[in-house]
């Protein structure tokens, strides 16, 4: 049980990662800071009962109510932002996101997500690396969408198959592939002159018009994917 948790902390699906990423340090710092704050507040309640605003009590408060919380702000926020990039964060909404995680990690998967996963293109942060416009990281409306999705997961009011509210923008694929040799040598990607096709840059044609869909979810009609 303990080793299981430990492995969950350390590695993702057999990709063994050394402990000590920025995220893991931040989780530890956040934990320690929260604990220190609670200790300071608890100590001040016991030691300085009835004279909380006097003399030395203020020094203890300076630590517990000012300095530690000031450190907690950046560490806490970093933890939230970094953790929400993690594949296991997306996976924590089992009911709705699980089929996508299974699709991603299927060893013989044919979808874009699965082939990318096999290339180990972003260990641990696969979902976020393609869906960089989603959830807490995107624009304000993306954050609202993330909140709405969280609410729907909580209340179980989402519809299957999940539909994208906006088509997947090519820019999210091009941020990696634009300029890459394998991509540029393919004529159907480029306009005469060897520059990336205008139609691709303007989302007039989507990458998935020619390539396999982002996800191949079992029991889901292909048409639904195209419509998204």
């Amino acid at each position: 049980m303990f080793t299981e948790v430990w492995h969950q902390m350390r590695g993702v699906h057999g990709v063994f990662l050394e402990w000590g990423t920025a995220l893991e340090w931040n989780i530890v710092f956040t934990f320690v800071l929260c604990l220190l704050i609670l200790c300071c507040i608890g100590a001040s309640l016991i030691v300085y009962r009835g004279r909380q605003t006097e003399g030395n009590a203020l020094w203890l408060h300076l630590l517990g109510l000012c300095i530690f919380p000031l450190f907690l702000l950046p560490f806490g926020n970093f933890t939230i932002f970094e953790y929400s990039k993690q594949e296991r964060f997306c996976a924590s909404c089992h009911a709705s996101m699980d089929p996508y995680v299974r699709d991603l990690t299927a060893p013989d998967g044919k979808s874009l997500a699965a082939t990318h996963y096999q290339d180990r293109f972003a260990p641990g942060e696969e979902c976020y690396t393609c869906h960089a416009n989603y959830g807490v990281h995107g624009t304000f409306s993306a954050k609202l969408l993330g909140l709405k999705d969280a609410w729907r997961e909580l209340t179980g009011t989402y519809t299957v198959p999940i539909k994208m509210s906006l088509p997947f923008p090519n820019a999210l694929c091009l941020k990696c592939h634009n300029g890459a040799r394998k991509f540029m040598k393919e004529d159907s990607h480029t306009d005469p002159g060897g520059v990336v096709a205008r139609d691709l840059l303007t989302d007039k044609t989507l990458c998935t018009d020619c390539h396999v869909p982002g996800h191949l979810i079992p029991g889901r009609p292909k048409a639904a994917m195209k419509a998204s």
Binding site: F31, C34, I37
Partner: peptide, 9 residues
């Protein structure tokens, strides 16, 4: 602040 710390933990 104690509430935030508890939620944080």
């Amino acid at each position: 602040i104690a509430t935030v710390a508890v939620v944080g933990i």
